Computed example of a mutant assay.
Amino acid sequence: MMHGWGYGMRGFFGGGMLMMGIFWIAIIAIVIYFLRNSNKSTNRVETYRRDVKEDPVEIAKKRYAKGEISKEEFQEIKEELKS
């Protein structure tokens, strides 16, 4: 009768503890993976926007449309950028 109980405990400590350790390491690795990738996915759009270079004339057009610069200043900027 004791032999059956002892055999089960030996199996638990022999392979069961190893499997439990592997299980928790895998869970922790999965959580870290998702935490890192969720942060990167939100930054991809911002990185793309920073990488795209706007044309200086387009910037001047936007500033003129907002009223930040006058028509004369806009014309000067365009002429200066052409040369």
Rank of each mutant, 00 (worst) to 15 (best):
F74L: 04
N43W: 12
F23A: 10
W24E: 04
S41K: 15
F23E: 01
P56F: 03
H3E: 09
E54S: 13
V31S: 04
S70G: 12
M17K: 11
G14D: 07
N39A: 15
M9S: 00
Y7Q: 12
F34T: 03
L35F: 13
G16I: 02
K66S: 06
S70N: 07
P56R: 08
Y48D: 00
G6M: 14
A29R: 10
E73W: 05
E72M: 05
I30T: 03
S41M: 13
R50N: 07
R49V: 05
G67A: 02
T42W: 02
W5A: 12
G14F: 12
D51T: 09
I22P: 00
G4P: 01
V52F: 04
I32R: 04
M9R: 03
K61T: 02
K71Q: 14
G4L: 11
M19H: 05
K53D: 05
Y64T: 01
R44E: 13
F74E: 00
A26F: 01
K61D: 05
R63G: 01
I69D: 03
E46W: 12
A26M: 07
P56H: 02
G16N: 03
R44S: 12
F74M: 07
E46N: 07
T47Y: 15
K61N: 08
V45K: 06
I27F: 06
Y48G: 00
R49L: 13
D51W: 07
